[in-house]
């Protein structure tokens, strides 16, 4: 069975799905990712689906589950690179991917994660009454 590689870049885990995943591979990815979040202490997960030519209800559910699991583990998940044809199909299928944040590409996804981390820092900083230099 193929395994989807998980890369660590700074404070972010990057998963770039390059293969047509079997359901087993998808479940395996879900488990691997949870372990890696805990092991690395990363606070952001980016799942790049640029190469996926379809997302069916199973993969859609996997993405939702990953987002929920990482939230519990204090990490933000952003799904990036969804193709237009895939998005149109998902709308028709009736899958709304609730609770998943999305961005057009990896770069935007990283900005999104950085921005939400900065917000959290701002809040923490405000409590202590100090200035931070976080930028969005």
């Amino acid at each position: 069975m193929e395994r989807v590689p998980i890369l660590k870049i700074g404070d972010i885990l990057l998963v770039s799905i390059q293969v047509d995943m079997s359901d087993q591979t998808a479940i395996q990815l879900q488990e691997d990712l949870a372990e890696r979040i805990v092991a690395t202490g990363c606070h952001g997960v980016i799942i790049d689906i640029t190469a996926l030519d379809i997302v069916d209800s199973f993969v859609g559910r996997m993405l939702s589950t990953i987002a929920s699991i990482s939230k519990v583990l204090d990490a933000e998940t952003v799904v990036v690179g969804m193709r237009p044809a895939v998005a149109i199909t998902l709308v028709e299928l009736g899958l709304s991917l609730n609770g998943i944040r999305t961005a057009l590409n990896v770069e935007r996804g990283m900005e999104l994660i950085a921005a939400s981390r900065a917000d959290e820092w701002d809040e923490a900083a405000d409590d202590e009454g100090t200035e931070t230099t976080a930028t969005a």
Partner: peptide, 10 residues
Amino acid sequence: KTVVAARLMG
């Protein structure tokens, strides 16, 4: 549907 699809794409 376009609006929803665009949202899915971010």
